[in-house]
């Protein structure tokens, strides 16, 4: 049985101006200790998928489908049952480290509180656990920094503390929502290395949610490409980069300025992101797709063999 299994997930938000269709019929599985990347641009619904798996969606959200964690449906769980799973089984890392940390609380208390709440650890056992996890995320001189406040750390160190908070109860799954977007490149590389080591040493499954294909390349075995809340392509990461089978993935890869081999003009994807106020009846990418045919604007392509496209791979430009 897979660790997390998302089946036909739909997420809509009721707003004053109508329904926003954020996620449309998304299904995927993640196995124990696996690393999966969810790649998408803003508005692709990637963060909403992660939030729904934590039971953290905004109040105006309407969901359908199933999110099975260990066979239990998270969408149907009570808050009580959810609280048992959050942090202990599934933990989340957010984009902005400063907003995940309480600025008025010392690091020791902030980390200790979590183990106290979930496992009832106190006193020296608690401190030992806190020190262990700070070592695990490679915060130098952890012992002397226990009493520090979040603002006394640099951005990269703060993100390490946030990762430590996610790790402290040994969860089986970590959802990392753009963990390095707010950080500089040099720090980004360090954090990605750290996540890699955690997965290897502790066997934690990691879902990396990002807009940056470059980050995905060196990290995840499998990649899910989202557009307009729908899965466009799902394949092994190497295959995504070497032989992308969906026009959107192809466009995305061509649009990235590559440091390794320079080209004269960047190939952009014309047009604008889709209007999410409309119900999805056709391929969301069709208006911007160079390979779109008549049928693309009227039929919703199913996800078959890891790609959702009406046209066969050979015919794509």
């Amino acid at each position: 049985m897979s660790l997390l299994s998302i089946r036909n997930l739909n997420i809509q938000f009721a707003t004053n101006d109508g329904m926003v269709h954020a996620v449309n019929d998304v299904s995927f599985d993640i196995q124990k200790g696996q690393k999966l990347a969810i790649v998408g641009e803003s508005g692709s619904g990637k963060s909403q998928i992660a939030l729904s798996a934590m039971g953290l969606l905004a109040k105006n959200a309407r969901t359908s489908g199933e999110i099975l964690f260990d066979g239990q449906d998270i969408l149907k769980m009570s808050t009580r049952a959810l609280n048992k799973i959050r942090t202990r089984e599934i933990a989340m890392i957010f984009q902005d480290p400063m907003s995940s940390l309480n600025p008025y609380m010392r690091i020791e208390r902030q980390l200790g509180e979590i183990v106290e709440l979930h496992e009832g650890l106190k006193g020296s056992a608690q401190r030992k656990r806190v020190l262990d996890v700070m070592d695990a995320v490679q915060i130098p001189d952890a012992k002397n920094r226990l009493k520090s406040y979040p603002h006394e750390f640099s951005g990269g160190m703060r993100q390490r503390i946030v990762i430590a908070m996610a790790l402290i109860c040994n969860p089986r799954l970590i959802l990392a929502d753009e963990p390095t977007t707010a950080l500089d490149v040099t720090v980004q590389a360090q954090i990605m290395n750290l996540l890699d080591e955690i997965q290897r040493d502790m066997g934690t499954a990691i879902v990396l949610i990002t807009h940056d294909l470059g980050v995905v390349a060196g990290f995840c075995e499998e990649t899910l490409v989202l557009y307009g809340g729908k899965v466009m392509e799902r394949a092994k990461t190497e295959q995504i980069f070497e032989a992308p089978a969906h026009p959107y993935t192809r466009g995305l890869l061509r649009a990235i300025p590559n440091l390794a081999d320079p080209i004269d003009t960047l190939q952009s994807i014309p047009g604008s992101p889709p209007n999410q106020m409309l119900e999805m009846v056709a391929c969301p990418f069709a208006p911007r797709c160079p390979d779109a045919i008549e049928a693309c604007t009227s039929t919703l392509p199913p996800l078959e063999n890891g790609r959702a496209c009406l046209r066969p791979v050979e015919e794509l430009s």
Binding site: T186, A189, Q190, N193, G214, A217
Partner: peptide, 23 residues
């Protein structure tokens, strides 16, 4: 150091980011 850390969108190239120590 800066360039070594820049992510490369190619899974075949193994990145070897140079870690900068110190504050």
């Amino acid at each position: 150091a800066l360039f070594s850390a820049a992510p490369i969108p190619d899974p075949k190239i193994k990145m070897q980011p140079q870690m900068l120590e110190g504050e």
